[in-house]
Design a protein around this nucleic acid. Sequence first.
DNA 1: CTAGGGTTAG
Length: 629
Amino acid sequence: MFLGLHSSKSRYLFVRALHIGPKLASPGAEDILFKALCVNIRQKKWKILNQLSSNLTNTLLSRIFREFQASPGLLLEIYQRIGEHKAISHSLNSCCITIHIMVGRKKYDDALSLMEQLMISKGHAAFEIFEALINTGSVSNIPVFDTLVRACTRNGLTDDAYELIKRLRIDSCWVSIHAMNNFLNHLLKIGDIGRFWIAYREMIFFGYYENVNTFNLLILALCKECKLSEAFSVLYKMLKSGIIPNVVGVNMLVDGACRADKLDLAVKLIEKIGIMSMGYKGNPELAEEIMGKMVIMGMSPNIRTYGILVDGYSRNGFLEDAFRLCDEMVEKGLIPNSAVYNLLIHWLYMEGDVSGALFLLSNMMKNCVPPDRFTHSIIVKGLCRNGQVNEALRVHNWGLEKNLAKDVFSHNVLIDYIFRDKDIRGAKQVLCSMFVRGLVPDVVTYGTMIVGYCKASGIEKALDIYSEMIKMNKNPNLVILNSILDGFCKEDNFDYSGVLIGEMKRLNMYDAVTFNTLLSGYCCSGKIEEAFGLFNSMGKMANKVTFNIMINMLCKLGLFEHAKELLGVMLCRGLKPDEITYTTLITSVSKTSSSEEVVKMHDYLVLRGVIPDEQTFKAVVSWVTEEGI
DNA sequence: CTAGGGTTAG
């Protein structure tokens, strides 16, 4: 009998070890334990780990880790099973040994989650882990530190990530371009574009060469800053560096063009990728070259490109074109995925077409396209937006039952809309139900609460939420800072808003919304001089909203001719008036001028691409009713 | 590394 033999042999060895004496007893016993553990672990018999837990010393554990370093899957399981056991505590070092082994075997995701365990569950600081990794390996083991940088950015530890990169540089160890890209991408995700450019310039200064991903990030950053032509010119820089653009960069340019109201440009870009240089730098030869290379690379628009364009059309009110594009896509053999369906359903809801959205949803099911984590939230938001908050709550609860609402997404939407009804209690209830389900509020949740409190009860309560957010180690982003700024402006507290803007500038975190918010604040409280001063200093940063705010102020002051002049400036700068410009101007002109003037203004604006919405319609209807036409 | 939730204007 195997077991009998085995146990008698163990007993024999054990007895012999006792006879040799206490000094040598322990290595012998450790050997036996070691072998027994290895045999059992290889057969995935985990019971022994529990049985022998009181004997597992650090030296024994390191031996086991080394023994299994060739099979990282098994190693990870050992590590986790030991971690589950209360009697044995992992040292930071044993975890770092495991991390080194995982990275050595290219199991980066496993290494990443081990690091996250150390940071989150065990509360180790990034630099503690850094030191331990050096102690258990070598500082020149770059992939390990690349992973550590990634772990930092994934958990919002921006400064730690940056300090790590700097610290390694002092040791003449350079994290890879991949880690640098990861850091740059993180800065864009948290909305810190100022810091993005500082980090990028620094990276180039220290001799890194951009790869295709770095260039894509540059395109993304420039698109976010609405510097579309600069974003396009990144393509030249890429080719000059001998790097061929890929579809990801082009997709971002398509998105940037759509968001800058340049749909035609987006379409051209897709139809003939080389065309983009026309009207920008005037170098058709280079454009042809780009196109040629892209065709060679098999770089044709993918499903994502079409999705972005579907979004672009819909966003600008051309839902019909979006559907036409879908037909074209299907003709080209690209099958709409859940993202394309989601986008269309989303925009149908935004247009108020609830039944159309419902129809498309059933079509999605019919075509066996599985709904994803976005679909559920889009339905919840769509219903809320169309005044069916109770129905949205019903769908939400149904989703919770069916386990479709696992993330904070739809919760955030509900909190937003319940807050809009000034139902603070109701919003708090949704927040509580989040906690009950083990969902942790994210930055958007806090942002929504801050805006909600600003509008429902004033800035003070909003600031409480802000400090709560800081306590939970969540970093404020640009949207949150802008919301707080709006709160100050709405309460005429321009001292605090000045301090805040100063701080935001120092942090390099501000955008057009920041200044538009302040501008709107000035206009609302009649600070005309300040408003003009700010407007003039905004320069190229001024966007459509900036002009709408200024036009509205001039109209309210009865300076209609000046408002029209400003409309001209707006058009000269390539900014298209929208339905808000329309309502502002029509409301004003109908009060002061003849019906001919109103009709003239209407035609003028519609010819320049304004697509009337419900409120523009109301503006005209009220004028017609008053005129008795 | 790219579309789909929270900020500014009627």
